[in-house]
Simulated assay, not measured.
Amino acid sequence: MSNRLVLTLAGTVLVGAAALLSAPASAQQNPVGQPSPRISVTGEGEVGVAPDMAILNLTVLREGETARAALSANSEAMKQVLAALKEAGVAERDLQTSGLSIQPRFAQPGKERNVEPKIIGYTVSNAVTVRVRKLGDAGAILDKAVSLGVNQGGGIVFLKDDLKPTLTEARKLAVADAVARAKTLAEAADIKLGKILSIEEQSIMPRPMPYGGPMRMAASDAAVPLASGENTYRTQVNVVFEIAP
């Protein structure tokens, strides 16, 4: 009985060893759960486009002996500015109050110490953001607004109203750039690219970049000459490729 048991166990060990020797080589090289070899690259796409819209930041600043007097003077001036903007063709939806501030003005401190600061008046500022969709009108609108009471601010940004076609083109260029980079790296490493495993776009919204090329006049006949230039929009994608066996 004991001899038969020993022989049976020995046979089992031999069968197990034979099974290990006959296991496929791929199973020994790529254990279960281990990711396949891969290569990751980042591609960039850049597209330059002329803007077709301007955003103006305009502020009316008024002073008065009291807060009410300063606010009333400011409100009257801002009403005239808004009316002129609408008359110039700016739609109601393109006008938005972006800030209102009421601040006291203090007398200059003298030589005396431990003296309470004295209020001698108030300053009221009212800021409005204006979207000018007819780029050629931006200079004339800015000139008109200043003549009617705008006396602070004046910031201007040129943008593209519909960015979808521009960003679509930038994404295509970014993916093409990633594929080209991956091919270069694979050739240098003497490996073959497999299928694309994932494509991920950067979540940051592309912003217009200054362009140093020739400038286009946005309002050549206006009292305030403006140059809109060209904006460059960039995007990035991360692409992961499988390495072919």
Rank of each mutant, 00 (worst) to 15 (best):
L142D: 07
N3I: 14
S22F: 11
S220P: 15
S75C: 03
G153W: 03
V128E: 05
I102S: 13
L142Y: 09
E230V: 14
K118F: 00
N30V: 09
V47C: 06
S40M: 13
P210E: 07
P35T: 06
D177V: 05
V115F: 01
R68D: 15
G16K: 02
G64D: 06
Q202V: 09
S26Y: 04
R181G: 08
E200G: 09
L14Y: 04
A189I: 00
R62I: 00
A186D: 06
I55S: 10
A10N: 05
A188Y: 08
S228I: 02
A218S: 10
R113H: 07
E116I: 08
A27G: 06
Q202S: 14
A73P: 08
T235Q: 04
P206H: 00
V239T: 05
E87I: 03
E169Y: 00
S101A: 09
G89M: 05
L135R: 01
P51E: 08
N231A: 11
I119H: 01
P225N: 02
A178I: 02
K134D: 15
V15C: 12
A50S: 15
P208V: 01
T232H: 12
E169P: 06
M53W: 01
L185C: 02
R38H: 15
L193H: 02
V47H: 02
V32G: 07
A188C: 01
A91R: 12
G149P: 00
E230L: 12
G48A: 13
P214V: 01
V175T: 10
L148R: 12
A88Q: 13
L197S: 10
V124N: 03
D177M: 06
D190G: 11
M209R: 14
A145M: 04
